[in-house]
């Protein structure tokens, strides 16, 4: 078949796809594609950040009260440190991928996954505490405070908190899945991971997930007391 002929005609490298002329073009395409994808991610989270801005602007005292009373900045800071460490190990994983060092690559990917699980574990503790306090928005929502706070407005705070940290946690879970798949493919010596591009792209994604948290943490945990 002519298709196969065409594939062979310029399939010099096992990981080069037929639509590309050379590896450089392919890698450039991956990089541009990943960055464009991250732009869509920014816009996706951007909608939620917009909602946060609008409601915090109109109810500063509610956000300050709820954030201080019910979100534990110790846990938040711990998680920030954990995620930042995971970003470091991800960067090292990319570095070892570029050096084609399989062992180091697996080690650092493993550390990144471990950090992600610690992050999710802490998040689980935080969320279940909120559930116990009836902070899940809905008919059963309750909000106890000595300040003069409109319960409905407090509910909005928790809507945003669950929606934004939930979406972020979903991204962490997707990251864990991608890293695990890549890890297994490295162990199985699959040809597509002999090259550093998959790990590098995962790295870009992971740093993005990290940066989102860098914004979420102060916005929810570190609201000034006076609003």
């Amino acid at each position: 078949m002519s298709v196969e002929v065409a594939h062979e005609a310029h399939g010099h490298h096992p990981t080069l796809h037929h639509q590309f002329e050379d590896l450089e073009q392919q890698n450039d395409s991956y990089v541009v594609g990943m960055w464009t994808f991250l732009v869509t991610e920014i816009m996706f989270f951007g909608g939620l950040f917009l909602a946060y801005t609008v409601f915090r602007h109109s109810n500063p005292e509610v956000f300050a009260d709820a954030g201080h009373k019910y979100l534990d900045w110790h846990k938040g800071s711990f998680n920030t440190v954990v995620l930042l460490s995971s970003s470091l190990s991800m960067a090292l994983a990319v570095y070892s991928a570029q050096k084609a060092n399989r062992g180091a690559q697996l080690l650092f990917l493993g550390i990144t996954v471990l950090c992600s699980f610690i992050f999710l574990g802490v998040k689980y503790l935080e969320w279940s505490a909120e559930f116990r306090e009836f902070h899940l928005p809905g008919p059963g929502f309750r909000y106890v405070t000595d300040a003069h706070i409109d319960t409905a407005k407090a509910q909005i705070f928790f809507c945003l908190y669950f929606a934004m940290t939930g979406l972020h946690a979903l991204h962490v879970i997707i990251g864990i899945l991608i890293m695990s798949v890549i890890g297994f493919m490295i162990v199985a010596r699959k040809p597509c991971v002999q090259y550093y591009m998959p790990v590098e792209m995962t790295g870009l994604y992971w740093h993005f997930v990290d940066i989102v948290w860098i914004f979420l943490f102060p916005l929810f945990y570190l609201i000034p007391k006076n609003g």
């Binding site: 909602a51 609008v54 409601f55 109810n59 899940l136 928005p137 809905g138 008919p139 929502f141 409109d150 409905a152 407005k153 509910q155 909005i156 809507c159 945003l160 669950f162 929606a163």
Partner: peptide, 13 residues
Amino acid sequence: LHIGIFDPAIGGD
């Protein structure tokens, strides 16, 4: 899931 920020009943807009 009752997580919504457009519903005026829970203070949304």
